[in-house]
Design a protein around this nucleic acid. Structure first.
Length: 573
DNA sequence: GCCGTTTTCGGCCCGACTGTTTTCAGTCG
């Protein structure tokens, strides 16, 4: 049975929760949490790596013990230590710790004093006012526990970056307009442009007499004020999103921005380097002894630590600190580097606009080329094109290219990869196209081996160029299908095929780790919006965000090239 | 439990806010 990294990470996290309740060494607990994070962000399953004979103890934060435990989970599906700990401590206590305001000490106190072992019992104890009687607890804590139990159900998921973007922007506007406010910036995973965001961390600088904190907690969209302090406040918006606001002195702005941008793992790695130079970094600055020697800007902070500026998107402790030390940071691709888009639909299949409308929108947005890639006939539900309709569309594209100046429309298709790996259209017509994107839209549940071979067989086709949305995942909705990404990438390299980074904010597929893997292999990636409407062209920026998180440079991206150069790259022999 | 240009033992980030305290513990980020 395949065991995925997510399951390994889950077991480590559960174990960490329970150990914490038992009062285990906090650093031991942290070691499990760090390991969970490391494993989850690997581009390949640990199971595969083990099968290939790789030594997992070489991974950062994984020693002999944890490597052995990963092996145990992969081989047995479960971890003996976790099972034992769950028996000693009751598995559901770990769930209680996820309630905001309830940590290991309080769970243990409630459990020991009242015998509470489940969420239902916790609610009953709170409703019977048993909790407020405990030492160290009171009415407010009891009320909070009840409130958080109710909120828990609809508050578990992280929010997609694209959904958070407009919320963050209107908050920024609101705060910028308040009297005395100088700088406003959203830090955290939002600034790192992570595909999903847990909460918003906003930093501001302002005059001492600015009413910004009161105006923040009084913002229209605020549903609940969790904290309201002088330098820090926290609210929950009607959308369910949590927002933290911090007021920082101007001399500390850079240090605070750096600190609150994270990630935590990255910050710790850099702080270690600082320690080696007898420096201390915190949100107030870089200190030598009691002297603040930097802090007003992020650049200053990096300079004092002796590192070049590391772009926020890279700050995940995935090798960027080592790369910075060696002065080998990538020069990340930018939105303005993109010259074209290689995946777009029209009304001929499931797009919302005509060929001409899509072409004009692309031209207006400054693109030099746009590939029209409607669905093929297998996707009958969206009237996918057969050979005849595709040829008609190709003629219309030729005519449009003669008429329109300033943009080139490429004749393409998003052809279905059928279950056996064959393509859904005749070889002849595929050979006449400028661009063939091949995608999977059916049979998501094949075994990993079959799914992988299906895709490789599709890439054997001499007209195949780019694998569309390579894992099929939909963020928060559908898991990736089982596929051996490393084999797929190696096969693509051998055949002269490429990967798509689908920039639809619901997809962002390839993910960041896969992009990094592609780059390491020297496999180029197309950043494509998969546009179904003229307005979708805007989504290219989400693709760029993800590409940057995946360390991609302009040269690693197919569509940073002029059409003439791209055409040569697409030529297979 | 991890890790090593202070190292194989003894560190591992630390400050703000809240609620419960009457000087601080717990939690969070």
């Amino acid at each position: 049975m395949p065991i995925h990294n997510k399951q390994v990470a889950e077991q480590f996290n559960r174990l960490a929760d329970l150990l914490e309740i038992q009062g285990a060494n906090t650093f031991r607990v942290r070691a499990y949490r760090n390991a969970a994070q490391t494993v989850e962000s690997l581009p390949r399953d640990a199971q595969e790596m083990l099968e290939d004979g790789e030594d997992l103890s070489e991974l950062p934060g994984i020693g002999d013990d944890l490597a052995g435990k990963i092996k145990e989970i992969v081989n047995n599906g479960e971890l003996t230590l976790l099972k034992e700990t769950e028996e000693e401590t009751t598995a559901e206590l770990g769930e209680m710790m996820k309630l905001p305001g309830v940590g290991p000490k309080r769970v243990k106190a409630i459990h020991d004093a009242l015998g509470v072992e489940s969420m239902d019992q916790l609610r009953a104890a709170a409703e019977n006012h048993e909790i407020r009687e405990l030492e160290g607890f009171g009415k407010k804590t009891e009320d909070m526990i009840l409130r958080e139990i109710d909120r828990r159900k609809d508050h578990t998921e992280r929010t997609k970056l694209s959904a958070v973007d407009p919320i963050a922007r209107s908050l920024e506007n609101h705060l910028s307009g308040i009297d005395g406010v100088k700088k406003v910036v959203v830090a955290g995973s939002y600034r790192r442009r992570k595909e999903t965001v847990g909460d918003l961390d906003i930093l501001i600088t302002c005059r001492n007499d600015s009413p910004v904190m009161d105006r923040f907690v009084g913002y229209d969209e605020v549903e609940e004020v969790v904290e309201h302090g002088k330098t820090r406040s926290m609210v929950i918006l009607q959308s369910g999103l949590q927002v933290d606001l911090r007021v920082v002195p101007e001399v500390c702005y850079g240090a605070a921005l750096y600190y609150f941008t994270g990630s935590k793992a990255h910050n710790i790695a850099v702080r270690r380097i600082a320690q080696g130079k007898k420096l201390k970094i915190n949100e107030y600055g870089v200190f030598r002894g009691d002297d603040r020697i930097a802090g007003a800007t992020e650049e200053e902070v990096f300079e004092e630590v002796g590192l070049p500026f590391i772009p926020p998107e890279l700050r995940e402790n995935r090798g960027e600190v080592e790369a910075a030390k060696a002065d080998k940071l990538p020069k990340l691709v930018r939105l303005e580097d993109l010259r074209g888009n290689l995946h777009a639909h029209t009304k001929d299949s499931d797009g919302k606009y005509t060929l001409r409308e899509m072409a004009e929108a692309a031209k207006k947005s400054g693109l030099e080329y746009l590939a029209i890639t409607d669905h093929s006939k297998a996707v009958a539900a969206v009237k996918g094109l057969d050979e005849k309709r595709l040829r008609q569309q190709m003629e219309r594209i030729d005519a449009l290219n003669d008429e329109l100046g300033g943009i080139r429309i490429l004749k393409g298709i998003e052809v279905d990869i059928l279950e056996d790996g064959s393509l859904d259209l005749d070889d002849d017509v595929l050979g006449e196209l400028d661009l063939v994107v091949g995608s999977i839209h059916s049979k998501f549940d094949l075994s990993k081996k079959k799914q992988t071979e299906r895709v490789i067989r599709a890439m054997d086709h001499p007209s195949f160029h780019i694998l569309g949305h390579p894992t099929g995942r939909l963020i928060n909705e559908r898991e990736a299908y089982e596929i051996d990404m490393e084999r797929i990438m190696d096969a693509a390299l051998e055949r002269g095929c490429y990967m798509e980074l689908n920039a639809q904010p619901d997809r962002l597929d390839l993910n960041d780790a896969h992009c990094k893997l592609a780059r390491e292999k020297g496999l180029k990636v197309a950043i494509s919006v998969d546009a179904h409407a003229t307005t979708d062209l805007e989504f290219l920026r989400f693709g760029i965000d993800q590409a940057r998180r995946g360390w991609l440079e302009a040269d690693d991206v197919l569509n940073t090239r002029k059409w003439g150069d791209l055409k040569r790259l697409l030529k297979r022999d």
